[in-house]
Computed example of a mutant assay.
Amino acid sequence: MKNIFDKTVTEELINRIHQLDTNAAPKWGKMSVGQMLAHCCVTYEFIYDNTHPKPKGLKKWMLKTFVKKIVTNEKPYKKNGRTAPEFIMTSAKAFETEKERLTKFLLKTQALGGSHFDQKESHSFGKLNRNEWNNMFYKHLDHHLNQFGV
């Protein structure tokens, strides 16, 4: 798995994002390109914006017990997989706004570096090591950029 905390990898991802345009169509799924970018921003909103309530009780247990392994391992996501309600985008999203937000989140994450995230508490999965954070960040974004052919 590529290391999102490496400046070269972050630049590669940003370059892929900049290859998108408002007419980009998905190879699978229903999201528009603006919705996909907003969807990818949710991961970073959990960390930086504190706009989503933390899961509690049974939901938190299910996320830590079952979902964490899927999200943080190196196995690529399947096409048309299920997603958490917070990630579902039903309204139109402004392409340029979402592209800029995602780029800023990537730059901030890379600047903080892997050591900042090592053993940091995640929104949904408890403490993650730097490799788990990296896999979660990189795998999700790579999956959706591939969805739109970049």
Rank of each mutant, 00 (worst) to 15 (best):
G29E: 12
E74L: 04
T65K: 15
I88K: 11
Q19W: 07
D49E: 06
G81E: 12
Y48S: 02
P85R: 10
T10M: 14
K120D: 02
L37G: 13
D49K: 03
I14W: 07
F125A: 00
V67N: 10
N135C: 11
M89N: 04
W28E: 09
K75I: 15
G57K: 13
A84R: 09
T10H: 01
S115M: 10
H39S: 02
Q119A: 09
A94F: 07
P53Y: 01
A92L: 04
P55R: 10
N50P: 00
C40D: 14
E98C: 07
N3T: 05
K127A: 01
Q35P: 04
P85F: 06
H18I: 00
E86W: 03
K56R: 12
M36K: 03
K68I: 08
E11T: 13
F137N: 11
K127D: 01
R130A: 15
F117L: 03
W133R: 02
N50K: 13
N15P: 08
K27P: 00
L13A: 00
L107W: 10
T97K: 05
C41Q: 08
K2A: 15
E96W: 09
K104H: 09
K60M: 14
N146K: 10
I17E: 04
F87Y: 06
W28N: 10
F105I: 02
F87L: 00
H144K: 09
F87E: 03
K75L: 08
H116E: 05
K64I: 02
V42P: 01
Q35Y: 06
V9W: 05
H18R: 09
R82P: 11
T83N: 05
T8R: 12
W28P: 05
A84T: 14
P55F: 13
R101P: 03
K104V: 03
T72A: 03
G113L: 08
T8Q: 14
C40K: 03
K64F: 05
P55S: 15
K69M: 04
K30H: 13
F87A: 01
I70W: 08
A92S: 13
E96P: 06
N15A: 14
D21V: 00
Y138D: 12
E11N: 14
T103W: 04
V71G: 08
I14N: 07
S32G: 09
Y138N: 14
F66V: 04
K69W: 03
S32A: 08
K30Y: 12
N80Q: 15
F46Q: 14
N134T: 11
F105T: 02
H144G: 12
P55L: 12
G149N: 12
L58C: 10
H123L: 08
E98G: 08
K75A: 07
Y48D: 01
K104R: 12
L63M: 12
A25T: 13
A25M: 06
M136W: 07
Q110P: 06
V150P: 14
I14T: 01
E98Q: 15
L102T: 01
T65M: 15
L128G: 01
K56L: 10
M36Y: 02
E100Q: 13
E98A: 07
E86F: 02
T8C: 03
M31W: 11
E121W: 05
M1W: 09
K54W: 00
K54Y: 05
Q119N: 07
M36C: 04
E74A: 03
